[in-house]
Computed example of a mutant assay.
Amino acid sequence: MEDLEVEWRRTDSETLVHLFQDGESRPEAQSQDYQDRAHFFTEEIKHRNFSLRLDHLRAEDEGRYTCTVHSQLESGETEVQIKDVERLLVSGSDRSISASVGEDVTLNCSVDSHIKPEHLDEVSWKKIDKENEDEDVLVLLYQNNKTFPGSSDERYRDRAEFFTAEIPKGNFSVQLKSVRTEDKGVYMCHVFAGRHSANATVVLDRLGFSALHIIMLILCISASGSALLLVCLIYCRSTTEDSVFHLQMFLVFCPNILMCLAFVLWGLSEGSVFESVCC
C-alpha cells in the first residue's frame, strides 16, 4: 500500500479532488472547493477500494472525474461522470431587520432562478416558535402556483402579501404591513420542490418607537403632571368653594381624559380596532 499513489481529479480542470500517498490520505492537498467534502472510505482502503464520497453536492460539481492509480510498476485510471445535478437554493437576509412600530417591512426570500415557480410544490412563510415547533405561526402560503392568504393566521391576515409581479423571477419576499411589537422574532421561508426542500430565515428585531408611542408617553406624563399641579392649586391658590369645585372637576376629568386618549392611541398603534373600542 505504501507504494500506491491514488489521485482523484476533475478531468476538465485538473483540479485535485483527493489524494492517497505514502500509505495515507492527504486531505491537506485537496483543492479548496473539495476540502471537508471529498473523502475515501477509510475502512475500505485496506481492500484497495479507493472509491470517493462527495458530500453536499453542488450544481458546479457536475462533470467528469478521473481516478488515477500509480505504482512502481504501472499505472491505470478510470473515469466517472456526475451529471444532471438537481439543486434547490433558497436565500434570505444575512442581517436582522430593524423597524418602527407601524411601518411596513420586507422579509426577503429568493429561490434559485433555474427553478420555475410552477415547478415549486409549496412556499410557506412561518414565524418560528423556538420552544415548540408545533406552535409555528403560518404567515403566508404559496401552493400549486397560487397564493392562499385565507390560510394565514389571523394575526397576519390582510397584513402579509407576496410581491406578485416578482414571483416569476423566483422572488418570494413578503411585505409585512403595520408592524406590531408582537411581530418581533424569527421568520422562515420554507420551499418544497419535488423531493427537495430548502429554507431561509429572516430575523425581525429592534422594533423602535413610532410617533404614536411618543405621543402616548407625552399624554401619560401630562396626565400625571396635571394631577399633581391641580392638587397644589387646590391647597395653595383657591379659597372659594366654587373655584375649589371647578378645580376638583378638572382633577377628576383632565388626567382621565389624557389617559383615555393614550390608551386609544395604544390600541391604534397595535393595529387592533377591538382594543381601541375597549379603551
Results as ranks from 00 to 15, higher is better:
Tyr34Trp: 15
Arg157Pro: 00
Thr147Phe: 01
Glu79Ser: 13
Ile167Phe: 09
Ile218Phe: 13
Glu7Arg: 15
Phe263Arg: 12
Ile97Gly: 02
Gly194Ala: 09
Leu140Gln: 15
Val6Lys: 12
Pro149Ser: 08
Val273Gln: 10
Asp22Pro: 00
His56Cys: 04
Gln248Ile: 03
Val17His: 02
Asp112Gly: 11
Phe263Val: 08
Pro117Tyr: 08
Asp12Trp: 00
Pro255Asp: 05
Leu207Tyr: 02
Ala193Lys: 12
Leu207Val: 11
Ala198Tyr: 01
Lys130Asp: 10
Trp266Phe: 14
Val264Cys: 10
Arg195Glu: 10
Ser75Arg: 15
Leu217Pro: 00
Ala262Leu: 02
Glu135Met: 07
Ser31Glu: 12
Leu233Ile: 12
Asn108Lys: 15
Ala165Trp: 01
His18Gly: 00
Ala59Asp: 04
Leu89Met: 09
Leu19Glu: 04
Asp205Phe: 06
Gly150Val: 01
Asp22Tyr: 05
Asn49Ser: 08
Trp266Val: 00
Ala29Phe: 08
Ser13Gly: 03
Thr201Val: 08
Tyr156Met: 02
Arg206Thr: 06
Leu73Asp: 12
Gly170Asp: 07
Glu118Arg: 15
Ile257Asn: 11
Asn132Ser: 11
Met259Gln: 12
Asp183Lys: 04
Asp134Met: 06
Thr181Asn: 11
Val139Pro: 01
Arg180Glu: 07
Asn49Met: 00
Gly102Asn: 08
Asn132Gly: 01
Phe50Cys: 05
Tyr156Leu: 04
Arg237Ala: 05
Val277Ser: 09
Ser269Trp: 00
Val90Ile: 10
Val17Leu: 06
Ser96Lys: 12
His190Ser: 06
Cys220Met: 13
Arg53Val: 07
Asp22Ile: 00
Val85Arg: 04
Thr106Pro: 00
Glu270Lys: 09
Arg157Glu: 08
Phe274Glu: 10
Ser276Arg: 02
Ile218Arg: 04
Gly63Phe: 10
Ala99Trp: 07
Val203Leu: 13
Gln35Ile: 07
Ser113His: 13
Phe148His: 15
Glu24Met: 07
Glu2Gln: 14
His213Asp: 05
Pro149Phe: 12
Glu135Asp: 15
Gly208Met: 05
Val273Asn: 06
Ser91Pro: 01
Ala99Asp: 03
His39Lys: 12
Arg155Gly: 06
Ile167Glu: 08
Ala223Lys: 08
Gln143Ser: 11
Asp158Cys: 01
Val231Ile: 14
Val174Thr: 02
Leu138Arg: 11
Val231Gly: 07
Asp134Arg: 15
Trp8Thr: 04
Leu212Arg: 10
Ser13Lys: 14
Cys254Pro: 00
Lys184Phe: 03
Ile257Trp: 13
Thr68His: 10
Arg64Gln: 12
Asp134Leu: 11
His196Arg: 13
Asn132Asp: 15
Leu204Asn: 07
Ser100Ile: 00
Glu182Leu: 08
Asp205Arg: 15
Arg195Met: 04
Ala59Gln: 09
Arg48Ser: 11
